[in-house]
Design a protein around this nucleic acid. Structure first.
Length: 509
RNA sequence: GCCGCGUUCGUCUAGUGGUCCAGGACGCCGGCCUCUCACGCCGGUAACACGGGUUCAAAUCCCGUACGCGGUACCA
């Protein structure tokens, strides 16, 4: 890709957009498309727009837009223009509004211009008539006959009807659509920023409906009109759009508009190879929509990092990136061309990596919800102390509530295997003595003190420190594994430790 | 069916004709560190879909086959 060959707009600013359709929850693939758009915009000091493509009134879902906005916000992908950001009526900005349903009067004139100039036509066929045509022509080799150059002559449209008849139908308000008049035997070629030169023959294209009988545009018309009016310089979208790009090219050419650069991203696939679907989410518990990630406790930084690397790589060996670092490193030329399978293990690893890099106070804050859900109400400071000693051994912030449960409530039982292995005949006596010393010491209860007292006692009794360390861990946490005992005890504090050690002496003898 | 796009370790990928008996990461296995468990560090495992070309030389270029994915709607 050549950054210098940037498509033109008035100011020469790079302008890209994420244009989701509010038909469902924000999908992880959609988030990645949004991310790549964002990265290009921020990396080039350009504009990142959000445009809601709600031209299908039947499929639009009310909560979907909220979910999309919420998902982007969760990840920190802020946009410069979009619903609620710029382009409001009277704002003196020609780019908005950013919901296609709010710009519906803009499409018909363009469709009519296309008709007037011979690049499109009116068609009056009913769905049943179209289906009849398909049924008649359907063969094994051609299971889905097109409404196109070959068949349009036999259909009911402004190309076959006498002019007066067409006019009369229009005047009567008869149901009609506007279809693109695809030329015959013509090659359509364009350069894709990630795939290079791509070409199609118009013979494989159909006369795409541009304006539906409800008066609203299809995606194809709307995206061309909007991208042009919004001065988009590069269209970055999923690979599923590649086959319709030649239709868009035909429209840009017919309208005398410069087509933005296009970049088609490889798809994200399920671990089993197919399309990442709702089924993967429901049956495999895989996070598929952004809200799944949120619910399952993933950190937004990790999700972004993970999907950024799913289909792109920096050409260096760096794997862990902050959003800012991604902005710095990203370029469309290093986007891969083949689909990538989702790998849950790697996602978890990224989550861990980002969690480890966060300050303990932040880990604490992010674990709060899960911790309180378990019924614990630790103070901010205490939770941060817990996070400090636990964060290197958890995958999710919420693990603090489970793996670290003993920080919030005394163990009600002791891990059997641990007791078996570590609780010796002298453990009770040693631990009791340790507790007494800790109680007597006038020094603070920091990790060093706790350790010194323990080692001194071990020396006196002429036993290895482990003879005391392991029972102490068992007593205070109920487990044989976890953070270093001394720092763990320091976090728990003197009172809890003494109580728990004495109780263990009693229970385990 | 047709059209398009793709195909390097199980997975994500590096690699743009020689420096590749293919490098990194996740996972897995082993070791070190160590009070345990993690973290971290060190080491190991494992791949150029297949067949033809082109070339002194191909993972890299060309053709074909296979396979995968996408598209083929008055959905986006």
């Amino acid at each position: 890709m050549s950054a210098s060959r940037s498509s033109s707009n008035a100011t020469g600013t790079t302008r890209v957009r994420f244009a989701p359709s509010p038909t469902g929850m924000l999908h992880i693939g959609g988030l990645r498309t949004a991310l790549y758009n964002y990265l290009v915009a921020r990396g080039k000091d350009g504009d990142f727009l959000l445009r809601i493509e709600d031209t299908d009134r039947a499929r639009s879902v009310a909560e979907a837009e909220k979910d999309i906005l919420g998902g982007l916000d969760w990840c920190g992908l802020d946009y410069d223009e979009g619903p609620g950001a710029g382009g409001e009526p009277g704002a003196g900005d020609s780019h908005g509004p950013y919901r296609q349903s709010e710009r519906s009067d803009r499409y018909r004139p363009v469709a009519e211009r296309l008709v007037d100039e011979g690049h499109a036509y009116y068609a009056f066929d009913t769905p049943a008539e179209i289906e009849a045509m398909r049924a008649e022509r359907r063969t094994e080799e051609n299971p889905q006959p097109k409404y196109g150059p070959r068949t349009r002559r036999a259909m009911k449209n402004s190309l076959t009807l006498p002019e007066e008849k067409t006019q009369r139908l229009l005047d009567e308000g008869a149901d009609h659509v506007v279809r693109l008049k695809v030329p015959k035997d013509t090659g359509v070629k364009f350069t894709d920023e990630v795939r290079g030169s791509v070409s199609f023959s118009t013979n494989d294209l159909d006369d795409q409906v541009l304006l539906k009988s409800d008066g609203l545009p299809t995606y194809h018309l709307a995206n061309v009109v909007d991208d042009h009016q919004m001065e988009i310089t590069c269209v970055i979208r999923g690979e599923e759009w590649l086959p319709s790009t030649p239709k868009h090219k035909l429209m840009y050419d017919a309208l005398g508009w410069q087509m933005p650069k296009v970049a088609h991203l490889p798809l994200i696939m399920s671990p089993s190879g197919g399309k990442l679907s709702k089924r993967d989410a429901e049956e495999g518990g895989l996070p598929v929509s952004v809200r799944d990630y949120r619910r399952q406790g993933y950190e937004p930084e990790a999700v972004l990092n993970f999907i950024a690397l799913l289909g792109w790589n920096p050409g260096t060996e760096q794997e862990v990136f902050s959003l800012e670092e991604l902005v710095e490193a990203f370029s469309l030329e290093r986007v891969a061309q083949s689909g990538a399978q989702f790998d849950l293990d790697k996602l978890k690893w990224f989550n861990q990596q980002h969690l480890h890099r966060l300050p303990p106070e932040e880990v604490a804050a992010r674990s709060r919800e899960a911790v309180e859900a378990e019924g614990y109400m630790p103070s901010e400071d205490y939770l941060a102390d817990v996070a400090a000693v636990m964060q290197d051994r958890i995958t999710f912030a919420g693990d603090l509530a489970t793996d670290g449960a003993f920080f919030f409530k005394a163990p009600d039982e002791y891990e059997e295997a641990g007791v078996e292995k570590r609780w010796k005949d002298d453990s009770a006596e040693l631990l009791a003595a340790y507790a007494d010393r800790l109680e007597a010491t006038s020094d603070g209860f920091d990790a060093d003190t706790v350790e010194q007292v323990l080692r001194a006692l071990a020396d006196e009794r002429d036993v290895g420190a482990g003879r005391l360390i392991h029972p102490a861990r068992l007593a205070t946490s109920g487990r044989s594994y976890g953070p270093g005992v001394f720092s763990m005890m320091a976090v728990l504090g003197r009172e809890r430790c003494l109580r728990r050690m004495r109780r263990a002496v009693e229970v385990l003898g």
